[in-house]
Design a binder for these strands. Sequence first.
DNA 1: TTGTATGCGTTATCAT
DNA 2: ATGATAACGCATACAA
Lengths: 343, 343
Amino acid sequence: MKLGQATIKDIARELNLSASTISRALKDYPGISDETKRRVKEVAKNMNYRPNAIALSLRKSRSFTIGVIIPEVVHFFFSTVISGIEDIAQSRGYNVILSQSNEKLDREISSIETMLSNQIDGVLVSYSKETESFDHFTRVLDQGFPIVFFDRAPAIPNAINVMVADYQGAYDATIHLISQGYKNIVHLSGPKALKISIDREQGYRDALEKNGISVNPANIIECPLGTLEEGQRLVSELFNSLPERPDAFFSCNDIGAVGAMKACRDIGLKIPLEVGIVGFSDWQFCAMLDPQLSSVSQPGFMMGARATEILIDIIEKKLDVETMERNLILETKLMERDSSRRF
Amino acid sequence: MKLGQATIKDIARELNLSASTISRALKDYPGISDETKRRVKEVAKNMNYRPNAIALSLRKSRSFTIGVIIPEVVHFFFSTVISGIEDIAQSRGYNVILSQSNEKLDREISSIETMLSNQIDGVLVSYSKETESFDHFTRVLDQGFPIVFFDRAPAIPNAINVMVADYQGAYDATIHLISQGYKNIVHLSGPKALKISIDREQGYRDALEKNGISVNPANIIECPLGTLEEGQRLVSELFNSLPERPDAFFSCNDIGAVGAMKACRDIGLKIPLEVGIVGFSDWQFCAMLDPQLSSVSQPGFMMGARATEILIDIIEKKLDVETMERNLILETKLMERDSSRRF
DNA sequence: TTGTATGCGTTATCAT
DNA sequence: ATGATAACGCATACAA
């Protein structure tokens, strides 16, 4: 019993053949006698031979591994995306190497460095909230290294992005609130550093204006943290400060919506009768709340899957980076539930 | 501008030195003149040199990569574990390669095969619900390959497991319900194939018996799916069929607890006044529900972190597999919230 | 202080 | 039909 894995050489020694013959026999190359193939495969099996992917990578300068850099794993939406990534990668014979930035720029940078060191074939990135300069990405992009961004699209010309229709989703949500007769709709917005926050806010604005409602700046509340407590606190403060009491909230995320829900309940407002609430992302728990929370559903799995398909197609040159469509926008779907349905 | 990455040879050529000198200079070996070191590092930087981790792996037969095989990524508890894994791995200089089995045995088997091919240094496993034979694990364990199991501990002698105190958590939850004066406590149990289900059920049983309450087999309802709908349906049926109406539910997972909550509400029962409910896992949404759901909190991040530390310690021979403690059990914590607090 | 040779596991190329 | 050799990028034992 030798320690470590059996190699081609071990098989060669066992059968008094050369390593090249073993290699060829194992891959059913023509010009190897059937008898030899049979014997080689038999011995390989007995020795529990397993090809060394590292050696292969070195030789081919290809690792069949893609990297994923993501802000957080413990996040319903992102974990869904990862699932989609992993699914496609696995079915196309690629490994997935995962790194979370925890929303930190320096971890993002060191992650991409390690991954490049590890000769990954391409990388999927959703950058951190701290990231404002994209040099660490352009540098590697300029070397012709494949990167596909998802969810958060950077300000890089020619970057390849897979996003959800944040604008449209926010627009739909706001229109829905208007159509339910809510008059004074507040938007809980996200960190301004993220394009998704800006797009969602714009969808909200346009929906109001399209309906002849002028946008009141005091009705847009930025929630940089995105926590429940923050949402609850900000909405409570709003109730005390705003002259005209809001009768609806469109939050850029579900957690904030729950915060708003609690704040409303704290002062005895009935949902959806007196206040309407809509979130964004359609996290699992939306349907568990009472009343069930309306939310804009984002196709996370699909996003991961499509981004991965695109990345691998680029790696395998089935897609031409020069001529391809560089922005893929996936549709959202408004899940109308009890928290915003009066009729 | 050459395509591909600069290598040690490129630097050597540039400086008219040998590759070995470059290698040594970059690693600050003694016996290289400071001047040479300086020049080498300068050129390395200019050429954007990045060591090829694949070549290193091949040479050292070590990849500094650990594999993670997990049933599902889109799962609050598991995603928390992954986060802990990733955190420690990153801080100790290891990559994480991720594969989800989707609770399928064949994917689990093929995942471990690919990972071994990729020369990972060790693997963290939470096996699938389908897995009943553990041959695919014992085979590699017997070769001396490091595996640490987490959450779901297999029936393998000498396996190294990191688990939560399922028995104790369930026991605590049940005692809590009893102490709140609930008399007829039903247990929604999990798939019998998982040890965690059995342990939780046993905790429930023992808590009752310790308090002189005999266990009514009709009060233990198996929920193999673990979905909200399943929980809701089974509890509704229970209300119609059981002679004596249950006044409390201890569910082996939070989703089932929400199902029970809905079923109670459907027939107008007040929580916690008329019915008490406790879940297991303390998912994020527990605190968002109304009433807030009591639940047994599992230290997911800690589990991932500890399992990874143990694995890496084994890999780096800081722990001796022969003599080490093979079972690490992490404590749970009962989060008492409104759904079960009458006093 | 630096260079040469060798090998990690595999395969493509060029023999035989 | 099979074998010998070189190469992928790097580190190290041994030479000089």
